[in-house]
């Protein structure tokens, strides 16, 4: 890795280039982020706090947290299994499997939602007879929102864990196995300590996307405020209804979480770079 040129040695042309980059990011990222905060507090802090105490907002927050709490463990388990299958085995179709795991990134969230509607809608879905018979509602209800969130966050853990698992190699696993460790012991004592930062990184990204997913959830949720609206949908609905303080207050909460995510990412990236024993 090469060292960056210290600021004191930059030429004016290089400063110009730096200025261009920062200005671009300023207009694209920083100004919009600032406007969220100023608008949320435009009617003063009490208005902001009142907005966050509305029933609709609290319901949306609760729903978002429930969905995220379900999605993270499921996709973590899947991500670990998929990463292990891909990193530890040579088989025909391995590349195909990798592309398949990445596929949700290339599918428009709206199309993902549409697919779920075609499967589970109680009007036109494939499974509508079964669902009606069982009296289970998926679309326009919590299970649909969970499914949509699972779909869009499916690749994150696997993608982050595959490279660290490949880097570990299969020899330490074989060594542990020869020494008599059970599969569970091997996972806990050999694999997990090595992949933990990559795994945590993947979970962080899963978390951010699960909290913020809009398109796929909007399709399957029905966007009923107070019932099936998650936080991002609450933001959109409030905004369309000209309740700008409510919209921006919720946006501030989500943006705050995004900032925490970025800080977490930066910290984890440092651990990635300095792979020293951490005890």
């Amino acid at each position: 890795m090469q060292a960056a040129k210290p600021a004191s040695q930059l030429t004016s042309g290089q400063w110009l280039l730096t200025g261009l980059a920062v200005t671009y990011l300023g207009f694209l990222f920083i100004l919009p982020a600032l406007v969220v905060f100023t608008t949320a507090f435009s009617d003063g802090i009490p208005a902001f706090i009142t907005a966050l105490q509305s029933r609709a907002f609290l319901q949306a927050t609760r729903l978002t947290l429930i969905v995220t709490a379900i999605a993270i463990p499921i996709n973590t388990l899947f991500g670990l299994c998929a990463a292990w299958v891909i990193a530890r085995n040579q088989f025909r179709g391995r590349t195909l499997l990798m592309s398949l795991v990445d596929l949700p990134f290339s599918v428009s969230p709206v199309v993902a939602g549409l697919m779920l509607v075609l499967l589970y809608s109680d009007r036109v879905g494939w499974f509508s007879p079964v669902l009606t018979a069982l009296g289970v509602k998926i679309i326009f209800a919590l299970p649909g929102i969970v499914l949509a969130t699972l779909f869009v966050t499916l690749p994150f853990v696997a993608r982050e864990v595959i490279p660290v698992l490949e880097e570990l190699g299969s020899e330490p696993e074989e060594a542990a196995r020869i020494l008599g460790a059970t599969p569970g012991q091997i996972f806990r004592r050999v694999i997990l300590p090595h992949i933990r930062w990559g795994l945590l990184y993947g979970i962080l990204l899963t978390n951010a996307r699960a909290l913020g997913e809009f398109g796929a959830v909007a399709v399957v949720s029905g966007s009923i405020l107070g019932r099936t609206a998650t936080l991002p949908i609450f933001v959109e609905q409030s905004y369309q209804n000209y309740q700008s303080v409510a919209a921006f207050s919720a946006a501030v909460v989500l943006a705050g979480l995004a900032v925490l995510t970025l800080i977490g990412k930066a910290i984890l990236e440092r651990y990635y770079l300095h792979k020293l024993p951490t005890h």
Partner: peptide
Amino acid sequence: FALPTAVAGLAL
């Protein structure tokens, strides 16, 4: 990657 898209749209 971190900011919910709805918030991004709102801000922009």
